[in-house]
Each structure stands twice: as C-alpha cells, then as structure tokens.
Amino acid sequence: MASENESPRQQPRPSHACMQKFRLYETHSKFYMIGRDKTRTYWRVLKIDRLDPSELNIREDSTTYTESECSDLLRRINEGNRSTGGLRFVTTCYGIVGFIKFLGPYYMLLITERRQIGVICGHTVYAVSKSEMIPLPNPDVQTNMAYSMNENRYKKLLCMVDLTKDFFFSYSYHVMRSLQRNLCDNETGQVLYETMFVWNEFLTQGIRNHLQNTVWTVALVYGFFKQVRIG
C-alpha cells in the first residue's frame, strides 16, 4: 500500500495563515480533510479514523503542503486504497462546528455553505447557510445502537437547532470579544473558545484538546449581527 504518511517536508505554520476552505474525502478506514488558506499557498491534512465505532481518533499531519504536493498525496492515498474502494470526495466545507456523541458513534458537524454578512476592521464575518452532520464510523463497523430509536431521537433534537439563523463567525477576527478587547491584546488559540459567547465550545473541546490548536474549527457565536453603510 502506498504510504499515507509520506511528507515532502515539515515547516512551521505561517503566522498569517488562516485556513478558510476545506475538502472532505473518505476511504474505507479514514476521513481526510484538506484545508487551505485564502491565497491557496498553505495546505494541511487532517486524518480521522473510521474503524472505531465509538471513539474519536484524530491526527493532524504536521506537514505543510503546496497545492501540487497535496494533489499528489491524494493520488497516492487513492492508489493505496483501491482494493477497498479508493478515495472518494464527500463534500466541500468551511470549517468544523464540532464532534458530538449520543449513545452510539461520533458525528462530525460541518459548515457546508456560508454567506458574508459584514466586515469588521477588514475582517470578513460570515453566517452559516447550510450545515451537515456526518457519522464517523464506516457502516461496516457500526453497532446496532447507531440505528436505535433513542439515537435517532437525539439526532432529531440536535437538528432542531437551526445554525442558519443568528449564528455568525469569522476566521480572522474574534467575534466573541468586544472591539476594545481585540484592540488591546492579541490572544489566540483555545483561550478564545473559553467564553460563554462561543456556542460550540463544548462540541470543539475534543479536537482542540487533542490537536492543541483551533485551525480546523470555527467559533460560532449566537446572537444578532447586522451591518449597514452610513451615508
């Protein structure tokens, strides 16, 4: 099997890099999320295990790729998994809202469509236009609990939360804090999620604690946001 871990090089994440668009792929055993920045110069890979029916196993590739290197990696992953169906594209997304577990498997919540609703100090603010909940385990390893009546009831309860109404986020501006505080300090990372204003703080806790970063997730704020031009 072609190695999925072969890396052309390792280098530190650029301080200005902010991943804003992602593509999710799947093989029989893993999900691969490919993230890139707005300028298409910074590419990273997140691997999520699909063979454990009840645990969350995530690993971030430490390599920073170029676009061509990332394409080559996906080609090699596809070739190495041909015997089990190869590599399949799942969806384009704009960030991970979080991971949730009821009685059975873990589910991944993704923003699959977004819309711009404003700009603060040059930083774009978005609202969620569409989201999707994807079960992590491969159907071959799912337990009966994943299809139980209680599991479906909890899933329906979560789906009653309409993320397309009154939720907003920004990749580069800390919308969970006041303008004054953002001007006074440059705090980044997990501390920004540890506030009552981040709706998905608990949902992102697992991936943030494991990876010790927040580059794959978005901090959703629930509230009212409206921007109008004066004059």
Rank of each mutant, 00 (worst) to 15 (best):
M196L: 10
F197K: 11
L183H: 11
S178W: 01
I230V: 14
S68R: 11
R9F: 00
L56N: 07
R76M: 13
Q10Y: 09
L203V: 02
Y65S: 00
Y173T: 14
F168W: 07
V191F: 03
Q116G: 15
M19S: 06
G95C: 01
W216C: 06
G223W: 06
Y106L: 04
R36P: 14
S131D: 14
V119N: 13
G231M: 03
N200P: 13
N209H: 11
I230T: 07
I120M: 06
L157R: 10
S172H: 09
Q20D: 05
L211G: 04
V218K: 04
Q10D: 13
N152A: 04
E60H: 05
K30D: 06
F31T: 04
S148F: 04
D140M: 12
Y154I: 00
N57V: 11
R75K: 13
F22M: 01
P135S: 05
V90L: 09
L110C: 05
I207K: 05
T195N: 04
V141T: 08
E187H: 11
P14C: 00
T91H: 11
E194F: 10
L211F: 04
S83M: 03
C184Q: 11
Y173E: 12
N152Y: 04
T112A: 02
T63E: 13
T64W: 08
V141G: 08
N144M: 03
Q180K: 11
M160Q: 15
S62H: 13
D49V: 04
M145W: 08
Y106F: 09
D166I: 11
Y171A: 03
V175I: 02
V141M: 05
S178T: 15
P53G: 14
Q20N: 13
M33Q: 12
G231T: 10
Q11T: 13
R50S: 09
E151G: 01
H210K: 12
R36C: 15
M196Y: 06
R177W: 10
L179F: 10
C121Y: 10
A127Q: 12
M196I: 10
T204W: 00
E187W: 07
S131E: 13
S15G: 08
P12K: 09
H210E: 12
E55I: 09
V218A: 04
I96H: 06
G35D: 00
A146C: 01
L87A: 02
C93F: 07
W199E: 01
L103T: 05
